[in-house]
Computed example of a mutant assay.
Amino acid sequence: MIRIMLVDDHIVVRTGLRLLLESQPNLQVVADAADGDEAIRLSEELKPDVVLMDLSMPHGKDGLTATAELKKLLPETNVLILTMHDDDEYLFRSIHAGASGYVLKSAPHEELLTAIESVFAGNAYLYPTATKRLMNEYMDRVRSGDGAGAYESLSDREREVLAWIAKGYSNKEIAERLIISVKTVETHKAHLMEKLGLRTRPDLVKYALKKGLLNFDA
């Protein structure tokens, strides 16, 4: 029996998921939570095998923060992200936070059930198009040599900006934290892309993840 906790701020979603999962003979929903704070509290109490975690929750801790904290407290509990965000940045940040899998809410029920069983067995699970994108990204890095030595060419300030971008902060928020102008942040961002051979903000996030620059404690 796989013991599952549901975390989503919409009660209709939680109710629907509970009905689906409890129709399976090997699945048991032990609790549901409306935000990350409640999820952490209940997880410590009940120690579920799998936590089905939404990302966007307006009240309390969001899914990424809750996942990172939950994995520190209960490393044996597997977190499976269930979200509407078909986005590389959210995908990579979820993996870094400690999630074992990532499934879209638009996925067929069979895929969700497969994902739950997969992460419970200790495996990782990504929805099919995400797996393809990751493979393409890997092959692009192999062909380009991964910009060997490029990171060493970055200034200390550029590395700071890269780390804040990777955590999802906007240019304005980064400027406020570093006490510099938004225009200066944009200049650093342009230099980062040029030096690292990257083209988009999600590319910077993925690069930072690979370099181990994401730190949810900071």
Rank of each mutant, 00 (worst) to 15 (best):
I2A: 07
R3K: 12
M5E: 15
M5G: 13
L6K: 03
V7R: 00
D8T: 01
H10C: 04
H10F: 09
V13E: 09
T15K: 13
R18I: 09
L21K: 06
N26A: 11
N26S: 11
L27H: 03
L27P: 11
V30S: 05
D32E: 15
A33Q: 08
A34I: 08
A34W: 00
A34P: 07
G36Y: 04
G36T: 03
S43C: 05
E45N: 05
L46M: 10
L46P: 01
D49Q: 12
V50S: 04
L52M: 08
M53W: 00
D54E: 02
T65I: 10
T65H: 10
E69Q: 12
E69I: 07
K72R: 14
P75W: 01
N78R: 15
V79S: 07
L80I: 03
I81P: 08
I81L: 02
L82I: 01
L82R: 02
M84Y: 07
D87W: 07
D88S: 08
D88M: 14
Y90S: 12
F92R: 15
V103K: 03
V103I: 13
V103E: 01
P108C: 07
E110L: 12
L112C: 10
L113E: 05
L113I: 13
I116F: 06
E117R: 13
V119C: 02
F120R: 10
T131N: 09
K132A: 15
L134Q: 12
N136E: 15
E137G: 11
Y138A: 11
Y138C: 14
D140H: 11
V142Y: 09
S144F: 06
D146I: 06
G149F: 06
A150T: 03
E152S: 14
S153I: 04
R157P: 02
E158M: 14
E158C: 10
A163R: 15
W164K: 14
I165M: 07
I165P: 00
K172G: 05
I174L: 04
A175E: 08
E176A: 13
R177K: 15
V182I: 14
V182G: 07
E186D: 13
H188R: 00
K189E: 02
A190H: 13
A190Q: 10
L198A: 01
L198Y: 01
R199P: 04
R199E: 12
R199V: 10
T200C: 10
R201E: 14
D203R: 05
Y207I: 02
